[in-house]
Write a protein that binds this DNA or RNA. Structure first.
Lengths: 208, 208, 208, 208
DNA sequence: TATGAATGAGCTTTCATTCAT
DNA sequence: TATGAATGAAAGCTCATTCAT
């Protein structure tokens, strides 16, 4: 099985066409969400959920695979947007806390799609690439901050910023998976505070 | 789709039958490993890889699902066994380092099966349970240690041991996924040392 | 499957409409010619080749079938026109030679459409009728000549003119198929001369 | 559309498998015969006619195309076998007459399949090749005879044996098509005698 | 037990035709 | 008339599961 390129250039569509295409994407998101599984969501389900005829699916997408790539990219982008901390202050501790809270809230909102993306990633190597890309963007943002903080003496300089950023993203990312997908129960406030403490400690930030 | 109980009690099999059954499990592991995907591995592939007739599969297993559950449980057990630190000393720092190294080595060895289990988990809720169980055993071991270390004043007592254990397992677990499944490249020694440092820092252990 | 009557009476069309209709027929001929197959030529292909909107096809034709019937009739007529010997002399030998050369040249020009008509004839019995009609016109012309030549003592009178005309048309027709459709290679001049000799011999015409 | 190689080597099949395969080929022949069309005969029809489950078709053939190639080759072989003159005498006139009668009888028996092969030939170039091959075998046999007769002074030596053989085969072949497929009515005895006379005349054989 | 052929539900995809604009 | 999006019936193919030997 090969992986299709996500259609980067969406060719000119009539307004009506664009609307149907959008309905299909939205319907697909619901359909995937309902079944909770990439393989078990049929084109029929997507069409039905979109209120569109079966055949119309193929007017806009070559295959389920192609649609899913586009959808996955959109979700991943949304998560990235939502994960951008709205906290603009200078204090690392508060910044970390704000970011983690935002990320986990976003994870909760997109938990099902994230699971499905994970599942599909086992099928399509290209999707793994997408997954790495998303991570990469988060990680990069964090790496830059770590280095800045290291320069300012706020973070232990012996830590490798790149590995550290990856590892801390892993911590929060996988904790979100555990919490919202696997369904491990946690006390919300306790969990959030602990996660942030672990980041702060791990980086060697001295609480003020 | 419902999830079958893994057949906990294997009923009396002749020695020959037991051998065929084992060959099927071993062959299945190779077949899943080769294709890297639960859905794309056919019963034919498993039978062929096992050197067993197509139809014999159903003499020993009710379905592909049932076999997979048993296989997944076995893999998960192996990982747990391998993840049991052979370091028996008392120093937390060394203990953590040894455990992380062992866990990640084990992850690398089982990376493909772990991905497939992840994929199948999206299909069968029961598998998610299994996944949580494995995690739970690791986490429990770590939680016990953390609490012991907290009692001895080696670890910050303000941290919740349960959440902390989960979060740190997430860190290592997901880092393994990133490294060995998504294929993010890391310098081995740097990565391992950094991971361990982050654990030690996070727990507030004072390096000696 | 039933066969539609070719619309013999084209109802009143505006001049613009007539032009679009003609473009569709011309475009269809090109489209069929390009694909070389009735079933594999899509309405889209025809519309695209005609520079006409998809839906407009159905403004002028009820179905692909109907258009094809009209097109086939046109092609068949053209072949008949082209097959009408421009040689006006009285010598049977020269007349036969001229007719064969013209027919085979015409066959070559229309080879692809002839194959497609053959293919479609298997789908629509009415098309077989059309095929027989074309043949019938050629055959009739030849039968008349044979009888005339028999009256004048130029052709063996023991031959049945009807069967003979059919058989000789078969000879040339199928030779054209072999040559231009199946692609059997022949030296052009040798082939043409031999064909004519065979006709002349077969009819028992004494070369002068 | 590409044309598959007819599976030249039928790999070892169990006797039961061989039987099912044969039933499919026989059933397909009936199904094609009933519908009279390659494209309109569905795999379902073939399976039903063979008294075999739908899926079993794919146990033995990759596609309708592949089965058809094998079937077409078989029919073509049968025609060749049946077309081998059982007349073993030395008289050209009688030999020609016997061969034409046999060929046309055989054509009548296989008329429907021949039409379908013709239709499919428009779809698959490889089938055209097969068609040419069959012709080639007939033609070759006739060419050899013509040359032999030329050596013995029985046939006009100015005729090119290769082109002549092809042209005469065309005559009989296409006459068969006209008669048995297009359904042009002929008096049997008159037609057969005329055809033979035309061959004899065309070759310049002196009736004894 | 072992074997592998047989089964058929289920899914994807195509495309002639309809229809709203 | 012209347009091209929408429709959905068909058809091909796959593969987990059953079953006769």
């Amino acid at each position: 099985m090969t992986s299709p390129q996500p259609s980067t250039v969406t060719q000119a569509l009539s307004p009506k066409g664009q609307r149907t295409r959008d309905r299909l994407l939205a319907g697909a998101r619901r359909a995937f969400g309902d079944s909770g599984s990439y393989v078990e969501t049929r084109i029929t389900d997507i069409a039905k959920e979109s209120g569109v005829a079966y055949g119309s699916f193929y007017t806009y997408f070559d295959s389920k695979e192609q649609l899913f790539f586009e959808l996955a990219a959109a979700v991943v982008n949304e998560m990235y947007e939502e994960g951008t901390s709205r906290y603009r202050g200078d204090d690392p501790t508060e910044r970390i806390d704000a970011a983690n809270r935002q990320f986990l809230a976003s994870y909760q909102a997109h938990a099902v799609m994230m699971t499905i993306i994970e599942q599909a990633a086992a099928l399509y190597p290209d999707l793994r690439e997408l997954r790495r890309e998303l991570r990469g963007r988060f990680v990069e943002r964090i790496r830059v901050n770590i280095e800045r903080w290291q320069t300012r003496g706020l973070v232990e300089s012996s830590l490798d910023a790149h590995v550290t950023a990856h590892a801390l993203v892993s911590l929060t990312d996988n904790f979100g998976y555990l919490w919202f997908v696997l369904g491990e129960p946690f006390d919300e406030e306790l969990a959030l505070r602990t996660i942030s403490s672990l980041w702060v400690n791990a980086l060697g930030i001295h609480k003020q």
